[in-house]
Write a protein that binds this DNA or RNA. Structure first.
Lengths: 133, 133
DNA sequence: CTAGTTGCAAAGAGTTTGCATGGCG
DNA sequence: CGCCATGCAAACTCTTTGCAACTAG
């Protein structure tokens, strides 16, 4: 009940090779339309990927359109994503820090953190260095 | 160069008295139109509040419209917001946990966390209790 | 052969904007 | 008074949807 179509494979392949970037629908379309995929298929597949949790949909501050980031790979599962609000770069928080933070959240509020869907915002090492000069 | 208008005051007053809920434009309009405010003013003021950081704009998974939450009060400044993906309830992470988490992020990645703009997602105590039954 | 998927074009929803009017300072 | 903010309605943009053709299983 889920066919393996050329269009779906195209999108997955593209995402697999761009783990830590996020893309607007337009960007995806620009990259993939040459291979034969329509805008509506991109939208439809994106919605499914979002529903089963392998893609994060984010609407950046001030942006009109949504951006999508793939989090379906082994690497991403169970890791907190940390994103720089200046350069947009995203990295994973190491396992140990992730579980400690989950524990602190649990201990202080009884709150069960979902690492995969939360994103930390702030300044990466490079960007915060620029700021302090 | 920013006038104190009745409409702006209406919105601020409403937000002040609903710290930890978030509202769609439509909900705000329903609540406030009786007092004399137009849809476009709500949009325009919301955009300004977002720009100066006193309001978070969020587009929930699967939602069409944006939701806005006030984070401009003393209470919110410097605190990480923790939101339940099931019931939507939002609370603050205590000071100590917040600063420890910021430290861990800094130590492991050199990343300067911005507590005010990051939101933790997961299940609150009550909702995770329901799940484990 | 059946059911899911695609493309296209049209429809829809939420948000933004132009312009004249009104209100703050 | 000058400048900013408001209201209204029209304009826009991004996203969704209906339908017929197509394709995977």
């Amino acid at each position: 009940m889920t066919y393996k179509t050329k269009q779906r494979e195209l999108m997955l392949a593209f995402f697999e090779s761009h783990h830590h970037d996020s893309f607007s629908v337009e960007q995806l379309y620009e990259q993939l339309k040459g291979e034969g995929i329509s805008l509506s298929s991109i939208y439809r597949n994106l919605n499914e990927l979002e529903k089963d949790g392998s893609v994060h949909k984010v609407v950046p501050q001030g942006a009109r359109e949504a951006y999508y980031q793939f989090v379906g790979c082994e690497h991403c599962r169970g890791h907190i994503h940390v994103q720089c609000i200046e350069c947009g770069k995203t990295v994973h928080l190491p396992d140990q820090a992730t579980s400690e933070i989950a524990k602190q959240t649990k201990d202080s509020l009884g709150f069960e953190l979902d690492p995969t869907s939360t994103v930390f915002y702030g300044l990466c090492k490079e960007c915060s260095a620029h700021h302090s000069r």
